[in-house]
Nucleic acid binder design. Sequence first.
DNA 1: ATTCCACGGGAATCGGTGGCAA
DNA 2: TTGCCACCGATTCCCGTGGAAT
Length: 350
Amino acid sequence: MIADPAVFDDEHLPRRLLHREAAVDHLSRAWEPALGGDPAHDVLIHGPPGVGKTALTRHSLQKLTGHADVQTAHVRCLGKTTAGVVRSVLHDLPGNDPSVNVPREDLCIQLQERVTSPVIVVLDEADGLPSTDALDRLVDVENLSSVVICHDPDEWLSRLDGRLRRRLSFAEFGLDRYSVDELADILEARANLGLPSESVTREQLEVIADEVAGVARNGIQALRQAALRAEELQHDRITDEDVSESFERAKRHIRELNLESLPFHHRLLYELIRMGDGLEAGELHDQYDAIADQAYHGREQTPISERARRTKISKLVEYDLIEVEGKNRHRVYRVCDREVVAQILLNHVI
DNA sequence: ATTCCACGGGAATCGGTGGCAA
DNA sequence: TTGCCACCGATTCCCGTGGAAT
């Protein structure tokens, strides 16, 4: 059923971005100076998750670098320190990576030296930065211009000093969620590329677009899951049931990927919570202590303190893997989807 | 009103890595 | 080669907070 799986990857960039013409124009204008070898203008792009901010930027940068001598760096800011951001920019530019123990100030100096012609740096998920210090460092570099991608522009701008705020709000724009029709167009284009012709109807695509409320990323994943289900059940085209089942499957898939990406501590706590099906904090800690020695036996890691467990638990919540009910000592932990299982062996322990 | 208890922020610390100078 | 230093991520320790239980 799926002719080309890559079409449904998060990283896949379509040749043409549908329904983002205005935004593409906006970016081209801001970057126009770079065509003549001058620094581009800074840009602030905002909008809810999954509406194509990153795709838009990557797509437009690709076009730009095709006919202008511009270097680019794409930084995923989430959880990065200032040094981490600068390091990541250096990584994307030509030259060797500085070693891990180079002080922050030296990294900034290296960056100054390395940027001799126009460079555009994308700070993706900039809300994830602890401070705006990283941006301060970047704008200090001559010839370097930035693209800041964030969810809440007001919150972001309020964190900046006047000079930076003016620089960024010069070319600022937001992306909205797609309408059902627009997203259905996007899904149709993907289906044409990745699925055999006529395997999905326009109506089904609209159902998906509607269900995911205009969030392109989720829509594409749902379409993929619908196609996978059709494949498993050997339908020659996607059925309405494949579609209605696809949403839960897409969510589950994302959760499974998230869970597997986490270290052992997290997965062990997750598994305890899953088996407990509604555990109070006290119970959770007791169970952890009871099995810790055996569970960690033969592993590099060692059991962690209660405080550290709380940090892991917050991470599980952040990743939408568990939920918390109640307050204070009566809060209860529960997994969001009991079908999502951590692939660790606990049966011999519990 | 007081006690209890878990949360979560922040500072200190630990362990591993790698450059650099003696 | 060896010792020293700076980095960083992960962890522990300390503690203020706040709502339920007593």
